[in-house]
């Protein structure tokens, strides 16, 4: 009896330890990285640089948050990079002062151009969502198709040329600021807070975890699984649309080759943030920190003057290392 008790208590001990690592490991990793960088480079902790890192993280952060919804339901969205470009160029064509690149009557007010970009993203997400949920096409294939199709539509739409000369009003969402905080960062914060609330405090959020954890059990519990699957792709598409407009607004013109391979950074942030690719497990906070880790690492390596090719190698190692830790952790349980 006494031996049972002691083994039980050590089991609980290790269980607690595991939980702590599981919950906070990513934060600890992030803080360590920041600490090392702030010691090795005095410029790192300046307000200007922090703002810069956040600005650089905002687009990937928004995409990664959308990706988290999809991955939590056992899906994947490879199309976000192309949707960024399509939404960016379509909305830009409504907000350009250029007489050749815009739609007839352009420039329209930003309040019209912005919803257009959002709608393009939502429409792309809805198409993918319907293909996945109604026709049971694997998400990998459906979104791979959209990756190619949306890129093609982007090139067709602009004739392969960029859409330049965006109105200052439109550019404000990328370059403006509120109380000194850059607009993209404000938008990332809003998207994060709303997503956190949706995933943690609404029925829809509960259903996402239930469907990702066991779709069969979700069906027998009366949950409309196919509608839920559709809606996560709509969310991801809509956020890709937002990110696309941010990108155009920041650079001042919409490029047809914008957003190439953005989906990989978004997936990387989700994975580093501890969300399981097999669904049902993960946190939106982890995703945000995952995106920040990527941003901080790139920034830190830039500051140290490390060539960008090395940065890619390191990022690759980081992704694989994070998942290796994840696997080890899961085996322990």
């Amino acid at each position: 009896m006494s031996t049972e008790n002691s083994s039980l208590s050590t089991w609980f001990g290790s269980e607690q330890r595991k939980l702590i690592i599981q919950e906070y490991g990513i934060f600890v990793a992030f803080l360590l990285l920041a600490l090392v960088l702030s010691i090795s480079n005095e410029y790192f902790l300046t307000a200007g640089n922090i703002s810069n890192v956040l600005l650089q993280t905002s687009i990937n952060g928004i995409l990664a948050i959308g990706m988290t919804f999809v991955i939590l339901t056992r899906g994947i969205d490879l199309s976000v990079g192309s949707v960024v470009a399509l939404a960016g160029i379509v909305s830009a064509s409504f907000a350009t002062t250029s007489s050749t690149a815009g739609v007839p009557g352009a420039p329209y007010p930003a309040l019209l151009a912005l919803p257009v970009g959002l709608l393009v993203g939502i429409a792309c997400g809805a198409i993918v969502g319907i293909i996945v949920s109604r026709f049971a096409v694997p998400a990998f294939v459906a979104t791979l198709g959209m990756l190619s199709a949306a890129r093609g539509m982007t090139l067709l739409y602009g004739g392969g040329r960029p859409v330049p000369a965006l109105t200052p009003e439109f550019r404000w969402i990328g370059t403006g600021n509120i109380l000194g905080i850059p607009m993209p960062v404000v938008l990332l914060a809003i998207v994060f807070l709303v997503s956190w609330w949706v995933l943690n405090r609404t029925r829809f959020g509960r259903y996402i975890y239930a469907v990702g954890g066991n779709p069969h059990a979700a069906v027998t519990s009366g949950i409309n699984v196919s509608r839920l699957r559709l809606s996560v792709y709509v969310i991801s598409g809509g956020l890709a649309g937002l990110a696309g407009m941010l990108l155009s607004a920041r650079t001042g013109s919409a490029l047809p080759q914008a957003g190439i391979s953005y989906e990989l950074d978004a997936i990387a942030a989700v994975v580093i943030g501890g969300t399981s690719l097999s669904g049902g497990v993960g946190r939106i906070t982890g995703t945000l920190v995952g995106a920040l880790i990527i941003g901080v690492m790139n920034n830190g390596l830039d500051l140290m003057g490390v060539q960008s090719y090395y940065q890619q190698v390191l990022k690759g190692a980081l992704i694989v290392g994070a998942v290796m830790l994840d696997q080890k952790r899961n085996q322990g349980v």
Binding site: Y209, G213, N214, A218, V219, T220
Partner: peptide
């Protein structure tokens, strides 16, 4: 088909 094994006892009861 009965449980979401990765979910908590609470979330399964409420599902």
């Amino acid at each position: 088909t009965g449980l979401n094994l990765t979910g908590s006892v609470r979330s399964n009861i409420c599902m």
